[in-house]
């Protein structure tokens, strides 16, 4: 009698253990999606697998932390404080963004410039009170636009900026945020995740079933649904275009990408620039600055730095220029030209 009960009991225990293990394994297929409004845009985060709940929760907190730090709209943010005090001892995030921005400024020969903010304000893109500034106003503001006038001491972590200068990381902040969120996913051992931070897409690993993520690239044209679809893993896809934010006055459309050299919205025949690379921060910075450069300069820039990134340019004739590194994974129905290094 006793022996039999033992046997029954052991069968029961074994079953419960087995079922529990089975159920835990099944948990790997779960996914968590979270939507939020932050950094003046709409964000969507999705993670797959165990820990996805905690990982997405941590990601949301990180986004809110960075938003509070980098927002130009808040009186309390570090960005606003430095712009007001003209000096400061920097946080780790601010210091990193400043270093990366200065590197990018050098790399892009001034096409990427975080000190363009006074012009953004003049055009009304900072507070949505749009207006067309006068030529003299633009010219006087342009004298404050110069990243080289920022003095940053890496040993003491102190920054000093000229009296009239203002810094805004808007051209790089969302990309940096997506990189940080990707790191959080790694910390939680997430194998598969994707976030769309206001159009900036960052992927972690592959899709849950092992296949590549398929990211469509928005078309600025009403009659074209998409520029194309790119299949990627573990990369950021970031597009910049004049169609994102703009206003019209006297029948002329003014968009939000201001050339730091002319102080005017960029008009060079490009309608959008998409950058594909592992580093979200760089992808974000490059998408804006290559848009500023224009087609020819952007292409020669890529030829000089082809190991760093790939890109898709779209011009006013709706023609695409696709770099050779992604020719296998990009599909489109539009006319396109492959850019090769040599």
């Amino acid at each position: 009698m006793k022996e039999r009960w033992k046997r029954v009991l052991s069968v029961g225990v074994l079953m419960i253990v087995g079922i529990t293990i089975g159920l835990f394994l099944r948990d790997d297929n779960k996914s968590v999606t979270k939507n939020l409004f932050a950094m003046d845009t709409y964000m969507e985060l999705t993670a797959y697998g165990r820990n996805s709940e905690e990982a997405v929760e941590a990601a949301v907190q990180e986004i809110q932390r960075l938003d509070a730090l980098l927002s130009t709209g808040s009186e309390m943010s570090e960005v606003t404080i430095v712009n007001r005090e003209k000096k400061g001892s920097l946080s780790e995030d601010y210091a990193y963004l400043l270093k990366r921005s200065m590197e990018l400024w050098k790399l892009t020969d001034g096409a990427f410039d975080i000190t363009v903010y006074p012009l953004m304000q003049a055009w009304g893109f900072a507070d949505k009170k749009y207006r067309v500034p006068s030529v003299t106003e633009i010219e006087s503001l342009l004298t404050y636009v110069d990243t080289s006038k920022i003095s940053y001491d890496e040993t003491t972590n102190e920054v000093v900026i000229p009296e009239q200068a203002q810094i805004d990381f808007g051209g790089i902040a969302k990309g940096y945020t997506s990189s940080m969120v990707a790191q959080i996913m790694k910390k939680y051992h997430i194998q598969s995740a994707m976030f769309n931070l206001g159009g900036n897409v960052q992927t972690v690993g592959t899709k849950a079933d092992g296949s590549l993520w398929r990211i469509a690239i928005k078309s600025p044209y009403d009659n074209v649904p998409y520029l194309g679809v790119i299949s990627i893993a573990e990369k950021a896809v970031i597009t910049s275009g004049g169609y994102e934010r703009y206003f019209e006055e006297d029948g002329i459309r003014y968009h939000h990408i201001i050339n730091p050299k002319t102080g005017m919205p960029v008009q060079n025949g490009l309608v959008s620039v998409t950058i594909i690379c592992e580093d979200g921060t760089m992808a974000d910075g490059l998408s804006t600055s290559l848009f500023v450069m224009g087609k020819e300069t952007a292409i020669s820039f890529w030829k000089a730095h082809s190991e760093m990134f790939d890109m898709i340019l779209c011009d006013e004739e709706c023609k695409l220029y696709v770099t050779e590194g992604i020719k296998e994974c990009f599909s489109t129905e539009l006319e396109y030209e492959i850019i090769s290094k040599y």
């Binding site: 419960i16 159920l23 835990f24 099944r26």
Partner: peptide, 13 residues
Amino acid sequence: MIFSYVEVLIPFH
């Protein structure tokens, strides 16, 4: 009840 508890703990999706 033990079985049900296991089920409640880790529900199938």
